[in-house]
Each structure stands twice: as structure tokens, then as C-alpha cells.
């Protein structure tokens, strides 16, 4: 089956985004395809490159980067991202900010990418 996920939880607020990442890995382990994870609303904080986890805590970025290494597309909603300072280099340049703040494994894109993913996927699950 083809899966797509929507992630709305912050990396530090509760375990919802960690649960989403664990579910994503389990989807791949089960032999399904996962083409896109769409981060919406507060979920865009998952893409910040500068998050530093204390040594005895889980690194919230690691689970997502492992998915990106398996060709899962990680898209931050551009409207949610820009207003929270989660910028790629294009947006940083457009708004005359000092530089990109998101990890290069993530891209920013419009809601159309969520609509497209939901139309193409057999299963769309939301994690908030």
C-alpha cells in the first residue's frame, strides 16, 4: 500500500511526532511505500536544523533523517513554516533573513502537496 502522513505535533511538546516517526519506520518495515510526510502547523518545528538534544534525550531529528535516507519526502507546509521562522535558503533570501534554518533533508511546499499525497496514497494518517 501507499502511505502518506501528516505530522502536527512539535518535536518536544509530547511524544506525538516521535510516534509518527516510529509509525513511518514501521510502515516501511511492513513493505509498504511511504512517499511523503507533510508537516503542518506546529509540526514544522520538526524540520529545524538547529535543535540540539541533551545527551540523555532522544534526538528528534534523527528519526526523520533516517526516513529521508530511505527516500521519504519530508515537506514542511510553507505557510506554517515561514511564520515560525522555519526557512529554506530560498525563503530566507526572499524575506531577507540571515540564512536557512531548516535541515536540508526537508523542503518547504504548499498545501497542494498534501492534497496530492492524499489523492495518491491508499492511506493517509494524521499525528497531532
Amino acid at each position: 500500500m501507499r502511505y502518506a502522513l501528516v505530522v502536527m505535533g512539535t518535536p518536544l511538546g509530547d511524544e506525538s511526532s516521535a510516534r509518527a516517526a516510529a509509525f513511518a519506520h514501521a510502515v516501511l518495515d511492513a513493505g509498504h511505500s511511504l512517499e511523503r510526510v507533510f508537516f503542518y502547523d506546529e509540526g514544522v518545528y520538526n524540520g529545524l536544523a538547529g535543535i540540539v538534544a541533551p545527551q540523555d534525550e532522544r534526538d528528534p531529528l534523527a528519526g526523520w533523517l533516517a526516513l529521508a535516507a530511505q527516500e521519504v519526502e519530508l515537506v514542511l507546509c510553507i505557510g506554517s513554516a515561514v511564520r515560525r521562522g522555519a526557512l529554506d535558503s530560498n525563503e530566507a533570501q526572499r524575506y531577507e533573513k540571515t540564512g536557512a534554518t531548516i535541515h536540508p533533508a526537508f523542503t518547504v511546499g504548499g498545501l497542494g502537496l498534501l492534497v496530492e499525497a492524499s489523492a495518491q496514497a491508499d492511506r493517509l494518517l494524521t499525528f497531532g
Partner: peptide
């Protein structure tokens, strides 16, 4: 566990998240 969660999502064609 997570593997059974995936199996549940296969069985049900749509999911509703409450949070």
C-alpha cells in the same frame, strides 16, 4: 506495538486522529 498499528491501518480505510 507499531507493527500491529500499521496492520490496523491496513484494515481500516480511513483514520481519524483525536488530539
Amino acid at each position: 506495538g507499531m507493527a500491529e498499528f500499521v496492520a490496523l491501518s491496513e484494515r481500516y480505510s480511513a483514520q481519524q486522529a483525536w488530539f
